[in-house]
Simulated assay, not measured.
Amino acid sequence: MRIGERRPVRAARPELIAPTGRLRAAWLEAHGEWGPGVHEDGFGLLETDDVESPAGFEAWMVRLASEAGCCTYRWIVDGGQVLGGIALRHESHKGVARAGHIGFGIRPSARRRGLAAWALGRMLAEAKALGMDRVLVVCEVGNIASAKTIESQCGVPAKPNVADESAWRYWIRL
């Protein structure tokens, strides 16, 4: 390869997979990109989760699996690398009113590739398969990238928009 020549871009072939301890190191690498705190929407991470220790990570995996009846968690993975996460909260999930039916997050180094829109489209199909006729998707006020992603999947701003100054709310009909 010569100086100034661009490397060929490998066509992404992402997958949506159920969370797995097999990818602990890859998940921790992605988590590290976000920095400290709980802000990777789509992973079901709580402030009380200790994902740094092997036992804590395993306990988190067990908790996510135990929520299968009310939430479908998926990791966006390509080539063994965790690129993001997406969660489909079923109607019975207690977090729907606050966080919506679907939450997603893409690690900073994997953004601007269309991964969020791709994953959201697949989760909308899962929601339809569950018998849902519309889903609520919420993003932080000012998060233009997430808003555009939601709108790309036919998201329409909720009317009236709830008086929550920290979130934009969108409905997507299935």
Rank of each mutant, 00 (worst) to 15 (best):
G79H: 09
G4Q: 06
M1H: 08
E140C: 08
Y73T: 13
K148Y: 01
R98C: 12
A11Q: 09
R10N: 11
P157Y: 00
M1T: 08
A119K: 15
P36S: 13
A117W: 13
R6M: 13
F104E: 13
P54S: 15
L23V: 02
L46A: 11
G85A: 15
R89G: 06
Q153V: 08
V96H: 02
R10E: 13
R173V: 11
V51A: 13
A147H: 01
A68E: 10
G95I: 09
W27G: 04
F43L: 14
A158L: 03
P19A: 06
W75C: 15
A30L: 10
G103E: 07
A65V: 06
P19W: 00
G35Y: 08
L120D: 10
E47H: 08
A26Y: 00
Q153M: 11
A116P: 14
R7A: 10
D50S: 11
G100H: 02
R112G: 00
R111M: 03
E67T: 09
E29I: 03
K148S: 06
K94N: 12
A25M: 01
L120I: 01
W118E: 14
G100V: 05
I144Q: 07
L174D: 05
Q81R: 08
L45H: 09
R24L: 02
R22S: 05
L64V: 10
G4E: 01
F104D: 11
H101I: 06
W118F: 15
A87H: 11
K148G: 05
S109Y: 01
G105E: 09
A65P: 05
W60Q: 02
V9G: 10
C139D: 04
R22C: 03
V156D: 00
G56I: 14
E33D: 04
R89P: 12
E58S: 15
E47V: 07
C139W: 00
M61Y: 03
E15Y: 10
G80F: 00
E140R: 09
E52L: 12
T20Q: 00
R2K: 10
G142Y: 00
R173A: 12
A97Y: 06
R63H: 06
P160A: 07
V62F: 03
G79E: 08
G100P: 03
A26H: 01
R113T: 14
N161K: 06
D50N: 14
E91M: 04
A110K: 05
R10V: 10
P54L: 14
E52Y: 00
R122M: 15
W118Q: 15
R169P: 00
V156G: 00
H31L: 14
V96K: 00
T20K: 02
E40C: 07
L28N: 05
P14R: 14
H90T: 10
F57I: 07
A110C: 05
E165T: 12
H39W: 07
